[in-house]
């Protein structure tokens, strides 16, 4: 069963998968890690992004990545609006712990069921020129359906990282949960800043969703499986750390790929959750936390 070739293939697939996971988790690192908003509906937004890519692809043959990019602003607005509602209903009343969580849980459920009602529970895929090819050297192959999303993911990652570290608003988003007062003194409205941050967080879901459906077929309830991945990465990264997110994403991707190669794919979902539980129990501050 074991061979070096298999191992190398699994490692390559793991790195590609990991880069993608990091991009998927990026939104949560911003909302959960930096803004302190526990958006458990984040994966549901990602699946929504997948279905939008699917719809545009099947109706008009639009490229999924292009669709993802086009819909970033739309998702940004949805995110900003959702934060407004969240702020007015829960955060302002100091009630996010119980009702805020229940709210996002309900949103997640609504998105999932609505997608089931429209598209059913069948798996959906997209068509694009870079799907189905692979570069081969000996027994080692790099499938382009993994490689292209990996590159796009890294590009998105870099863009968000630069925005967060180089611009005033980006730095304000990082600071808003820690020091509201300092922000107010600098003339920034914490609520507006959080709205911006949450908008960006949901915005990334549009593109991440498009990448997801390129990599694997999607059905509405797979979103729940990704809750494990994204939270495992966000926690393992050390909440709010963007470079940590990339490292944690790669760790998870490689671990999952190895497990699924050598133990069978039915064990793969447990890897993320196992890492998450272990991280919570033994190192809740994450790899890059203090």
């Amino acid at each position: 069963m074991f061979s070096v070739e298999l191992l190398v293939n699994a490692l390559i697939a793991g790195v590609l998968l990991g880069g993608f996971y990091a991009a998927v988790s990026l939104g949560l690192t911003v909302s959960f890690g930096q803004l302190n908003i526990v958006n458990i509906a984040h994966p549901a937004f990602i699946i929504l992004g997948s279905y939008i890519a699917y719809m545009c692809n099947s109706l008009w043959g639009l490229d999924p990545i292009l669709t993802g990019i086009i819909f970033i602003p739309v998702f940004f607005l949805i995110g900003a609006g959702a934060y407004r509602l969240y702020y007015e209903s829960f955060e302002r009343k100091d009630d996010e712990a119980l009702r805020g969580l229940a709210f996002f849980f309900g949103v997640m459920f609504i998105i999932e069921v609505a997608l089931i009602m429209v598209y059913g529970v069948d798996f959906r895929t997209v068509q694009a020129s870079y799907i189905g090819q692979s570069w081969k050297a000996g027994g080692i192959g790099v499938p382009t359906r993994m490689f292209v999303p990996f590159c796009v993911a890294i590009a998105m990652f870099t863009a968000v990282y630069l925005y967060m570290s180089r611009t005033f608003n980006g730095r304000a988003i990082k600071a808003v949960a820690q020091d509201r007062l300092a922000l107010q003194l600098m003339g920034a409205d914490p609520v507006k800043i959080k709205q911006l941050g949450f908008g960006i967080s949901i915005g990334t879901a549009a593109l991440a969703g498009a990448l997801l459906i390129i990599i694997i077929p999607v059905e509405p309830s797979v979103g729940r499986l990704y809750i494990g991945q994204v939270f495992a990465i966000a926690v393992l990264a050390g909440l709010g750390s963007i470079p940590g997110t990339l490292v944690a994403g790669l760790i998870l991707g490689i671990a999952e790929s190895l497990v699924s190669t050598f133990f069978g794919p039915s064990w793969a979902p447990a890897v993320a959750f196992g890492i998450l539980l272990a991280a919570l129990a033994f190192r809740p501050q994450g790899l890059f936390g203090r």
Partner: peptide, 26 residues
């Protein structure tokens, strides 16, 4: 395992637990 942490980690851990258990049963 989780209750010594912030409450939200308990919530996430319960979600994780359900999926780990489902995988085990499968």
């Amino acid at each position: 395992l989780t209750l010594r942490l912030r409450g939200v980690f308990f919530a996430i851990a319960t979600l994780a637990m359900a999926i780990v258990l489902e995988t085990l049963i499968i």
